[in-house]
């Protein structure tokens, strides 16, 4: 912690960064912090409750963050993958951001939970994590932490759904999407949802009805998932932001598995590796095409 705070003080005092974006203690657990003066550096914390994907604040369409100056962002390994996504998609240039990597031993599901990692509390995204020590960084802080308990709960649930008939899956998803109020919190919380104007906000033509009936909701959730296929880093922020509890991670994770199966692609923190949608191989699988 001291390492992180000292670095923050230095970056701000030297004028290398205008703001350091990390985590602080809020009334309901850990939350994002925007440190703009060296004196506030001691507010910063990092523990297993720091679940937020702060790469979201690097979205170029956030003028209120831009106004604070050049950002230095604290990133876990999974957050670094989202930063890589922004770099890959030309939303960010590497010299416009300072990345402070933290060695991570897994996070809990919500920032309000105690920072104790058990099979019941660990976030599903930590399953199969390959970036406990982020590589895409300018500074690396913190000690190596032990591997978190493993939970394959998400993959188990997907296997259960896969085993159902299409009709049963349809019933499951209609019951889930029926709750959607179309607040688009899932989109706002997503570090990779960076379009200047989201397709669901467009009205000429209106591809996606803004009404929260199931017809509009299916169009939205199919599109959100499709547009994130091969791009989603699996941080689960969409699901955490959803005020009505739609299990969006199931869809995202399913598409991660599909993309792995079809194109042998796993999302990476290397911005030089192209995303699978937008690229192609001449010998891609095409059994589904008559």
């Amino acid at each position: 912690m001291k390492e992180l705070r000292d670095l923050t003080r230095k970056l701000l005092a030297d004028g290398d960064a205008g703001v350091v974006i990390g985590w602080e203690e809020g009334r309901r657990g850990a939350r994002p912090a925007f440190i703009t003066t060296p004196d506030d550096a001691d507010k910063l914390i990092f523990d297993a409750r720091c679940v937020h994907n702060l790469a979201n604040y690097l979205n170029p369409r956030k003028p209120q963050v831009k106004a604070l100056g050049k950002p230095a962002v604290v990133v876990k390994g999974c957050d670094a993958k989202a930063v890589a996504g922004l770099l890959r998609e030309a939303q960010l240039t590497r010299d416009r951001v300072i990345l402070i990597g933290v060695r991570c031993g897994g996070v809990v599901q919500t920032p309000e939970m105690p920072a104790e990692l058990t099979e019941a509390t660990v976030a599903t995204r930590c399953y199969g994590c390959d970036v406990r020590e982020p590589k895409l960084v300018d500074h690396l802080v913190g000690d190596a932490r032990p591997e978190p308990p493993v939970t394959a709960a998400l993959d188990r649930r997907i296997a259960e759904l896969d085993a159902l008939s299409p009709r049963e899956r349809w019933q499951f998803w209609t019951s889930q999407l029926a709750k959607c109020t179309r607040c688009h919190a899932c989109r706002q919380a997503c570090p990779l949802c960076h379009c200047e104007r989201c397709i669901t906000d467009k009205t000429q033509p209106q591809w996606i009805e803004s009404s929260s009936h199931l017809r509009g909701n299916f169009a939205w959730h199919l599109t959100r998932a499709q547009h994130l296929a091969g791009r989603c880093v699996g941080c689960g922020e969409c699901e955490r932001a959803c005020p009505v509890g739609i299990p969006l991670s199931l869809i995202n994770r399913k598409l991660q598995l599909v993309v792995k199966d079809l194109f042998d692609y796993t999302v990476t923190d290397d911005p030089e590796v192209p995303a699978p949608i937008g690229a192609y191989a001449v010998d891609d699988k095409q059994e589904f095409i008559e």
């Binding site: 299409p166 399913k254 690229a279």
Partner: peptide
């Protein structure tokens, strides 16, 4: 068509997962 093949390869699986029977959609060359 190569780009389309990638996108529809994914979308077909997505439809299936959401309970839309992919048999309702034919992809062909």
């Amino acid at each position: 068509n190569y780009h389309a093949r990638r996108r529809f390869g994914v979308f077909r699986e997505l439809m299936d997962f959401m309970g839309i029977d992919p048999q309702r959609v034919t992809f062909s060359w």
